[in-house]
Design a protein around this nucleic acid. Structure first.
Length: 500
DNA sequence: AAGAGCTTCAACCGCGGACAT
DNA sequence: TATGTCCGCGGTTGAAGCTCT
């Protein structure tokens, strides 16, 4: 039984209002999807796009190749365009993006369609303000990943890289500076200014040095007495070094070293805190960002804030198996439980493998895969780590999204903070775009190789924000999903992993 | 009331990687 | 191996809306 996607939450006016309220302004009126009443719209209508970036453009330097063939629209999307794209992708999946506009009857390039879908129309998008937990998580993950927005976004279900990037640039940066923290280095501004280089740390762009933060020697990673599991981390670091040579990754060059430092530190100093089957706990300094974020918050996820001076990450230990190499990966997942899927697999070139993930790690395992799925759902496989959710006749034979048959809880959007403004997909189908309702009964794929969007990411990290009971329920669901959806992939990847 | 300046964020641009031929 | 195509990512742009004077 394939789980249906989460209910579609179209961009909601209330969400915008909430966001606007937070930033102290009136809600921005977006006539495209927030409100289709053009009388409210200060923006141009579909036929008014004649100036600036909203104009029809012909061939232009730098345009994507698919844009050369015909005059294509640019600029803001009209409600009609949105509806066309939404209907098309909902019905057929996006397949090859370059063919989407043609198939959907849009005068857009595939790239633009992809962007619109990913950033605005995707059913699993969460709208509204960023919660404090999300904000903290962004900061923490940014400290490790740098400006890898897509990977950061993978840690925040329902958020897009663009959204996070904008949020970072417009809000978080400012906040951090106000707190005396350099948003680039995540170090105190005074320190970075003294160093004379407030943009790029002297260690080659390392955002955070765990050893430094902990007052530990960064050379600890080179300690010959470190256990095998830590050495395998070093191997991963070595592997990462290749990637870090890429200038684009310079901002995060030190992340694995940072992980390694902490791993070693944990091996050295936390033995009394370790469980028998856990390779290590990772002490992290108290988030310096949490100071004015309402001190009582206690997040249940690794990269979140805690009132304690040190964060101790315990992933439940059942994830760890007897294979020290794997244990090492598990340890990494402990440190970065949410980053493990996309980030770590990218860093390390490894994928987590569990043939039969135990309940305790079902959420993680499904997340790992789901994160990749999410981040590369539109990919043609070039990420190497993602699992493509190819369209399957079984998906379509019964209708793409058979939500009317869902039990009530299936219709409840998974929300971090509870956002009542989020419309349910079924409501949406009968609301903003009534014509879309017919989609449910139409289901002949156009392509032989369609990447349907009907399987959006399993909401792995959201468990961090749910209460424990809901968390357990969701983990069970995720386990079920993981075993159902990715069972074959687990098996195949498992074989591959054994060869490592 | 007007407009300058600022903020927000949707969308574009260009690059690099993966893949096909 | 070379070339072309496609995709995804991160940086940037600029319109819309807000605040301040």
């Amino acid at each position: 039984m394939i789980e249906p996607p989460p209910p579609f939450s179209p961009p909601s006016k209330e969400g915008e209002e909430e966001r606007a309220k937070k930033v102290g302004r009136r809600p921005r009126l977006n006539p495209h999807t927030l409100d289709c009443d053009p009388s409210r719209s200060p923006l141009r209508t579909d036929t008014e796009a004649s100036v600036g970036r909203n104009a029809f453009l012909g061939v232009e330097m730098g345009r994507h190749s698919c844009c050369y063939k015909q005059k294509l629209r640019k600029g803001l999307w009209s409600p009609e365009e949105d509806e066309k794209l939404l209907k098309h992708i909902t019905k057929y999946g996006h397949g090859c993006w370059s063919s989407v506009p043609k198939q959907a009857g849009l005068q857009r390039c595939g790239k633009s369609c992809r962007l619109r879908w990913i950033n605005y129309l995707r059913p699993d998008l969460k709208r509204g303000t960023f919660s404090q937990e999300e904000e903290d998580l962004i900061i923490e993950v940014h400290a490790v990943l740098g400006n890898r927005w897509s990977q950061i976004a993978a840690q925040l279900p329902g958020r897009t890289d663009n959204e996070i990037k904008n949020f970072w640039n417009s809000c978080i940066k400012k906040k951090l500076r106000q707190r005396g923290i350099d948003p680039t280095t995540h170090k105190p501004l005074a320190e970075t200014q003294q160093g004379g280089d407030d943009k790029v740390p002297a260690n080659g762009g390392r955002s955070i040095s765990g050893a430094t933060d902990l007052g530990l020697p960064s050379s600890a990673a080179l300690n010959p007495s470190i256990p095998k599991s830590a050495r395998s981390v070093m191997q991963m670091v070595d592997k990462f070094a290749g990637e870090s040579s890429n200038p684009k990754n310079s901002a995060t060059t030190g992340a694995p070293q940072f992980l390694l430092d902490r791993f070693v530190a944990s091996q050295d100093s936390t033995s009394s805190c370790r469980s028998s089957n856990s390779p290590g706990f990772f002490p992290l300094p108290q988030s310096s960002y949490a100071s004015d974020c309402g001190g009582n918050r206690t997040a249940s996820v690794g990269l979140a804030v805690t009132p304690n001076p040190l964060l101790w990450f315990n992933h439940g230990s059942q994830l760890v198996d007897s294979n020290p190499e794997f244990s090492c990966c598990s340890a990494m997942s402990t440190l970065l439980p949410s980053a493990s899927g996309s980030a770590l697999s990218t860093w390390m070139g490894l994928k987590p493998v569990m043939d039969n993930p135990p309940p305790s790690c079902a959420g993680i395992s499904s997340y790992w895969e789901a994160a990749n799925c999410s981040s590369s759902s539109g990919s043609s496989g070039n990420t190497g780590g993602g699992i493509e959710l190819q369209s399957n006749s079984s998906y379509f034979d019964n209708g793409i999204f058979p939500w009317p048959d869902l039990p009530p809880d299936r219709d409840a959007p998974i929300q971090l903070q509870g956002e009542p403004e989020d419309l349910k997909w079924s409501e949406y189908l009968h609301g903003a775009f009534p014509a879309s309702a017919a989609i449910q009964n139409q289901s002949q794929p156009l392509y032989g190789d369609i990447k349907t969007e009907s399987q959006f990411m399993v909401d792995g990290l959201s468990t961090c924000y749910l209460n424990q009971q809901a968390q357990q329920q969701q983990q069970q669901q995720q386990q079920q999903q993981a075993s159902n959806i990715y069972g074959k992939d687990f098996q195949s990847v498992s074989v591959a992993f054994e060869q490592i």
